[in-house]
Amino acid sequence: MGFDGRDLPVIDPPTPLPPPFKLSADRWFFLALSLLSGTYVLLLLAMIGADFFYTTPGHLWRALGSPEIRYAIKLSLLSCSLTTLLSLWVAVPLGYLMSRRRFPGRALLDALLDIPIVLPPLVIGLSLLILFQTPPLRALERFFPVTYAIPSIILAQFMVACAFAVRTLRTTFDELNPRQEQVALTLGCNRSQAFWRVILPSARRGILSAATLAWARSLGEFGPILVFSGATRMKTEVLPTTVFLELSVGNLEAAVAVSLLMVGAAVGVLLLIRYCGRPDLTPPSPSLR
């Protein structure tokens, strides 16, 4: 029957429901998925397990006692922390601008910011090396040595870590409700006050995630450092350099021990990232009430 009371021809009659799927079909589907996923997880665990079983507490202790490795640990911790601070210093404003402002060339800048993520690490190192061969930067190096010195490590780590921090923070700012900022403006804030009082505190979890990601990326950075900073013991030696140097002289035990230290640091960082995103730290949806 139509809205006006006239009979309408039936053109789309209901069809009976198909017979329900057997439960076993679902079980096979999930079993296949689990098998495929399990292969990778197993390989991952086996890889870390192999490192653990290859080394002994004695190897680890000896590695920690070596002055070269202790220097590499100290330099890694220092350079990664400085790189993280520098990355946040740049990534917070850049992520916010990319998320909130529309300007000519934005799409191009967006693509440019991904270059350090997709570029082969060695190429980043080589590009930095060539950049510091240009006359203005060579002049700078007369007063402030960068290439093959500690600042080059921080710069090489920064080029990659910052790109990851920008990505993380841009997503964070994208997910923040822009209405909050608008309400802050109507309440009397200028843009800067709205940013400092409303946006930045709301983005704190994203900032912490970006910091931990930048730190972890810096810790594992090797290619650009090898090219731009060299691999000089007790000078430009960070933990990945130690693994490389120990391997190159056939000291597999020390290389594995240092690798395990890095695995431990990576797991620690991952746990911290997970902790930042814990449900009890994340605002629950109001609809759950």
Partner: peptide
């Protein structure tokens, strides 16, 4: 606004 847009922090 529609959703209140309260400040999270």
């Amino acid at each position: 606004p529609q959703d209140g847009a309260l400040f999270d922090s």
